[in-house]
Design a protein around this nucleic acid. Structure first.
Length: 588
RNA sequence: GCCCCCGUAGCUCAGCUGGAUAGAGCAAUCCCCUCCUAAGGGAUCGGUCGCAGGUUCGAAUCCUGCCGGGGGCGCCA
């Protein structure tokens, strides 16, 4: 409909140009928008305002000429000029209501499109370090990424969902150490647990216990051997990093490569399995779990550095290898290979992103926590240095979520180990509420997650509010059966012009807007607009429900027309909730 | 110090690529079940869009400066 009006305007403009009213070179992008106020019709355009100046005419006069030049169209009932020179279009009732048939015919495909034209897009999200269970902060990135990916798929992109597994590096060594030390405790060895090691009880419970059951005391050493010549920990006036690093070396030495690797991998796989389970229960699946270690094994990290070196974008200083990031828009140069010969996380990321592009994705989307924003310029700098088109990379930053219970902020810090896990959140409020609340706000907005509200079974809870619209339609249909009425879709189609109530008109307009909304929501990576849409749709439906009976006894044609409308509403609610990963219950 | 995000009703937030009297929800006050689930609906109250300039036919929206809140600035990941 929007496109139709657009082309009507374009041909109107064309004839004005031919008639010499408008200068030849006038080629504006015609903007057609849905009106907010129904007094302004269904659609409006501001072309007359935009063209007033080049045409040397006042906007209202120009609008008048344009309206006269518009071709007739049965779908347009009326055209008006309003305000400073807006042109308002009133769509005929029958043309508008045809959306109901469209929804019924397309079913769950309604709202989908092919603007993506099958182009390949990679979405990398969550990618939390496998050192412990996912917490509520990761949950938001997970929910957001899942919806962004689903939306892109809905509008025709070929989407590849990927989780980057940081299975190499020091933090994983600390995990391995933590597992081994907890195991030693299970063996009865007594020593002070390092302040900088991972203290979560999942380590003892899920990992060290398994190790102990498998190998008995075979991997154990006495406390004296463990702690000999280890520098003091922070509480004892030492440096916690040096303390932990020394212990990691000790573990490697005592266990030997094979056993150390065994402990390391045990920790990794147990934690990763937990993460996978959590995400699956949250309705998320990935096409690929991409290993950082694999990147190193395939030599890609060194290849990346080499390529930068060939291009003259790296130099040596203080024994380390630096990338000239500052020449490509970053604040300063960045180390890619440390003095000790180890490559940095950044070097891995360069290699990873090179690989993403080489795998043939036209667009690559990274979804990160907002605390990583400082990292964006350096990655972009690397892309540019490598001669990659920067526009292919999108980094979407998601702000953290704060939980509120009883009006109080739930204290959380990774350091103190008092973080709430995603699993706990899910168990407390349920998957639907969690998914819905997480994407309710603009991603760059801090999210206040009200646990009491998410749990409440009341009209205040926006999740139930939307779901209830779906359940209510189901309930009406059940009621219809109970009353012995038969629904006739065709008869409803015949009575489509009977839907003249203002509630019906608004609902029809709302349904029409859905495909555009999905498209915009997808292309702009803004799931929250879908949430708002569903709330409005549900609201209009509930209002309609209270204002008019659907199961009209004495007028089968009107009844079936109304039933077609509300079944279409149900379909769109279901499609929308489906995109959000939220269920659409048949009864509540 | 530099960088990013945010500042809209008492609270939580929308506001599309600049557009017509700035919108929801919650809270507050009042009203609606002999009627398809009241997990619902309606009405009222509530705003100097942080402040000051600028751009233009038109600014909550774009630009600059300032104020306030949050986050980030490692040879960590």
């Amino acid at each position: 409909m929007k496109e139709k009006i657009q082309s009507l305007i374009e041909s109107g403009l064309e004839s004005l140009v031919e008639g010499g009213v408008l200068p030849e070179e006038t080629r504006p992008q015609v903007q057609v928008t849905r009106t907010k106020d129904k007094a302004h019709g269904d659609f409006a355009t501001n072309v007359a305002l935009a063209l007033a100046k080049p045409a040397g005419m006042n906007p209202r006069e120009l609008a008048g000429r344009l309206v006269e030049a518009l071709p007739e169209d049965p779908a347009i009932a009326r055209v008006e000029i309003a305000g400073p020179g807006f042109i308002n279009f009133f769509v005929s009732q029958a043309a508008a209501a045809s959306v109901i048939d469209q929804v019924l015919a397309q079913g769950e495909r309604f709202g989908r499109s092919d603007v993506g034209a099958g182009r390949r897009v990679q979405v990398e999200f969550v990618s939390a370090n496998p050192t412990g269970p996912l917490h509520v902060g990761h949950g938001r990135g997970a929910a957001y990424g899942a919806v962004v990916a689903d939306l892109l798929e809905a509008v025709g992109f070929d989407v590849h969902r990927e989780y980057y597994v940081n299975d190499a590096g020091r933090q994983m060594d600390i995990l391995a150490l933590s597992v081994w030390l907890r195991y030693l405790e299970l063996c009865g060895v007594e020593f002070p647990f390092p302040s900088n090691a991972y203290k979560g009880d999942y380590i003892t419970r899920d990992i060290a216990r398994v190790l102990f059951d498998e190998v008995g005391e075979e991997y154990a050493v006495p406390a004296a051997e463990l702690m000999a010549d280890i520098p003091a920990d922070e509480p004892d006036g030492g440096d916690k990093e040096a303390h932990v690093d020394a212990l990691i070396e000790r573990a490697r030495h005592v266990l030997g490569d094979v056993r150390y690797r065994y402990v390391f991998d045990l920790g990794l796989t147990r934690v990763l399995d937990g993460i996978r389970d959590d995400l699956e229960a949250f309705g998320l699946t990935f096409d690929e779990w991409y290993s950082e270690r694999g990147l190193a094994d395939r030599g890609l990290i060194n290849q990346g550095i080499e390529r930068l070196r060939e291009l003259g974008h790296v130099y040596e200083q203080d024994g380390a290898l630096w990338f000239r990031a500052s020449e490509f828009g970053d604040d300063k140069d960045r180390v890619v290979q440390r003095e000790n010969g180890q490559t940095t996380y950044f070097a891995s990321d360069i290699a990873y992103h090179m690989d993403k592009l080489e795998r043939g994705f036209e667009r690559v989307i990274d979804i990160w926590g907002a605390d990583h924003h400082g990292y964006v310029p350096r990655l972009r700098a690397a892309m540019r240095a490598l001669g990659e088109a920067e526009e292919r990379l999108d980094v979407l930053l998601v702000q953290f979520a704060a939980l509120y219970r009883g009006g109080e902020k739930v204290p959380m810090s990774t350091r103190s180990g008092s973080f709430v896990t995603l699993r706990e959140l899910r168990e407390e409020v349920g998957e639907d509420a969690a998914r819905f609340f997480y994407v309710m706000r603009k991603s760059e907005q801090h999210l206040d997650f009200d646990l009491d509200l998410a749990k409440s079974q009341s009209n205040d809870n926006p999740v139930y509010y939307v779901q209830y619209a779906h359940a209510r339609v189901c309930s009406v249909l059940r009621q219809m059966d109970e009353r012995g009425m038969a629904r006739d879709v065709e008869r409803g189609r015949g009575g489509i012009t009977r839907l003249t109530e203002s509630h019906e008109q608004s609902l029809i307009k709302r349904l029409q807007a859905f495909p555009e909304l999905v498209e915009r929501s997808a292309l702009r990576h803004e799931p929250h607009t879908l949430v708002h849409y569903l709330r409005e749709l549900a609201n209009e439906f509930h209002t309609y429900y209270n204002a008019h009976p659907f199961l009209v006894e004495e007028d089968a044609e009107l009844r079936d027309a109304r039933l077609n409308l509300i079944v279409a509403v149900r379909q769109v609610v279901a499609n929308g909730l489906g995109l959000l990963g939220v269920s659409a219950p048949e009864r509540m």
